[in-house]
Design a protein around this nucleic acid. Structure first.
Length: 565
RNA sequence: UGACCCAUAGUGUAACGGUAGCACUGCAGUUUUUGGUACUGCCUGUCAAGGUUCGAAUCCUUGUGGGUCAACCA
């Protein structure tokens, strides 16, 4: 009871859209809110869409309303079934369900046509036979009024006849358009007789070749919302200036008081990446990345392949907030969200990315011990795993220094460290190759320090390891940010975002992992202890596992050192 | 140089005329069989100038800065 009250207090902090909704609910007793997520199926969804998906579906969930999935498929020249499939997969993967409410703007083409006819009959729309360039020129500029089309006042009958001919395919692409008759001197460019229909002799993925004319987004979108009974039509800031046009269209087709209310919020931007569909498409088409699901892409499929979880993305979407101010979120917030989830849930394993051999001279040759090591200290109920230990181990090359600085807690000549889950070892000798590179480290172990044996001796450092005869070879793909600058969208004159691609965004290495992971399958996530979070990539084969690094662990040692330099 | 929108720590986001808070980042420390996690502490903020008011981040005016709009794209 008391706790609930506290929660209610805390929940008081609403974003501005929630405030609008709560006010709506308060003034419309018995009503439920109804939102929608309306992607155009012309590309893959990215994390910016995830923000919108979480907003729309999340609001519906929170206020016991409904959220539709609607494809804005009004431009068959750009849209494909492949994109529809990927969008559905991504929304589902994020954890949202549109049940049977999967709609398409193309479902409404007939109704839209009827309404267009009514507009023509009311003298509110006309067929314009000018070229796109002429129309564009007449539209004027924002600070100067446009001029009216010579076809603007042709008789209703003629408009009706021509529009019908358009539908029948009696015109070639671009020969004429249907325009709304509004106000060529409006300071809002969208009100200067906007185009409602254009002619396109193009096959549509759902309506086949039935239509030769296709409605413009501005004409189809608000009407689709209206038809679906959407109460709150949430969109990004750039559509704010379209709102008067949507309202005008709606006022032409209905007297109903209850119409969708459009509310605009700022789109998501993230530092060191790009978010526009056009640029993402360019990255894919020009081969700068290996596909829409390349783990460096901010697409949902890319993040999924990178090892991000639905929960981490939902938490991230929560944390970035909803407001009207342009923003650039630091990638570190995204990284925090996935580390938070995986720290709690990912199994720990040993993986050595840059192996160097450690030989324990006083450990019997040929002996193997199966050590039990916890899966996840944050989650003891995950139990333990068996890790084989033997005389020869791989350890991380940078876990040894011949001549260490004072605060170095790892292995160095004469120093002792704990091998995680095993024994203390003390370095006794080093063997180098002809170039002075360390080839083998020699050490002795202290049998009385076996993990869990109750030994009270302390040592400052603990390192991970993999037994040489048991080690599994694997490929590891180390990903870094795709761009070298915070705002690739905002570059100097004459440059493009491509000039700032990070040449080191992907490094492929070979590594050694503990044998227990042999049976892991694509999508499984692990913490390589002390290194970072990794997931099994779909490129893995029976012969070889491939791991993607999702994100490295925070590393205050590395940070401290890079600062000194 | 038109219309519309926006302005709070480094980055985001709260405070609804009454003590500027939270998260991330950064820094310092405690704990630690992960230099991780957890925990503690610290740094840094109301774009400017006027006005209204006992009292302004909040309301008004002006300015400044940023964004959006001139596809037969969405």
């Amino acid at each position: 009871m008391n706790k609930d009250n506290i929660n209610n207090e805390e929940r008081k902090s609403l974003n501005f859209i929630e405030e609008i909704i709560e006010e709506y609910l308060a003034t419309h007793p018995g009503k439920k809110i109804h939102t929608r997520f309306p992607p155009e199926p012309n590309g893959y969804l990215h994390i910016g869409h995830a923000k919108s998906i979480c907003l729309n579906f999340g609001l519906a969930e929170k206020y016991q309303g409904l959220c539709n999935l609607r494809f804005d498929d009004t431009n068959p020249a750009k849209e494909e079934q492949e994109y529809i499939d990927s969008i559905k997969e991504d929304v589902r993967w994020l954890g949202f369900d549109w049940e049977d409410r999967e709609y398409y703007a193309s479902d409404y083409f007939e109704q839209l046509y009827e309404w267009a006819l009514a507009l023509i009959k009311a003298g509110k729309a006309y067929v314009d036979e000018q070229t796109a360039e002429e129309i564009s020129r007449q539209r004027g500029v924002p600070s100067r009024p446009g001029i009216e089309s010579p076809y603007r006042n042709r008789p209703v009958e003629e408009n009706l006849r021509l529009f019908e001919a358009m539908r029948k395919g009696e015109f070639a692409d671009g020969e004429c358009v249907l325009r709304a008759k509004i106000d060529m001197s409006s300071p809002n460019m969208h009100m200067r007789d906007p185009v409602m229909y254009r002619i396109m002799h193009v096959h549509h993925h759902r309506t086949d070749d039935k239509w030769k004319i296709y409605p413009m987004y501005d004409w189809a979108h608000g009407e689709s919302d209206f038809l679906e009974g959407i109460t709150h039509s949430l969109c990004t800031l750039e559509f704010e200036i379209h709102r008067p046009l949507y309202e005008w269209f709606i006022s032409q087709i209905t007297d109903k008081e209850e119409v969708p209310r459009q509310v605009e919020f700022a789109r998501l931007n993230i530092s060191y990446t790009v978010m526009s569909k056009r640029k993402l498409q360019q990255l894919v088409k020009e081969g700068h990345v290996q596909g829409w699901d390349d783990p460096r892409m901010p697409t949902i499929s890319g993040l999924r392949r990178r090892g991000y979880t639905p929960a981490s993305i939902r938490n991230f979407a929560d944390r970035v907030g909803i407001a009207k101010r342009d923003n650039i979120i630091e990638v570190s917030l995204l990284e925090h969200s996935i580390r938070e989830d995986l720290n709690k849930n990912a199994a720990r394993i040993f993986g050595v990315l840059d192996p160097v051999k450690l030989i324990i001279t006083n450990y019997p040759e040929g002996k193997t011990e199966d050590l039990e090591i916890e899966m996840n200290p944050e989650k003891p109920e995950m139990g333990k795993r068996i890790v084989p230990f033997s005389r020869e181990l791989y350890i991380e090359r940078n876990d040894f220094m011949e001549d260490p600085p004072k605060k170095y807690f790892r292995l160095s000549p004469g120093k002792e460290v704990r091998l995680k889950g095993a024994y203390f070892v003390k370095c006794t000798d080093v063997e180098k190759d002809e170039n002075g590179n360390i080839r083998t480290i020699y050490a002795t172990y202290d049998p009385s320090t076996k993990s869990g044996s109750g030994n009270t001796r302390k040592v400052k450092g603990t390192i991970h390891w993999v037994s040489v005869p048991h080690a599994l070879d694997c490929e590891v793909r180390l990903y870094d940010r795709l761009f070298t600058v915070e705002e690739p969208d905002n570059v100097e004159e004459g440059e493009t975002f491509l000039d700032y691609l990070n040449p080191d965004s992907l490094k492929i290495i070979r590594a050694k992992v503990e044998p227990g992971v042999k049976t892991a399958s694509p999508g499984d996530t692990f913490q390589f202890m002390r290194l970072g979070y990794f997931c099994v990539d779909k490129d893995s084969t029976k012969e070889q596992l491939v791991f993607n690094r999702t994100v490295a662990l925070r590393d205050s040692w590395k940070k401290q050192n890079s600062k000194k330099r």
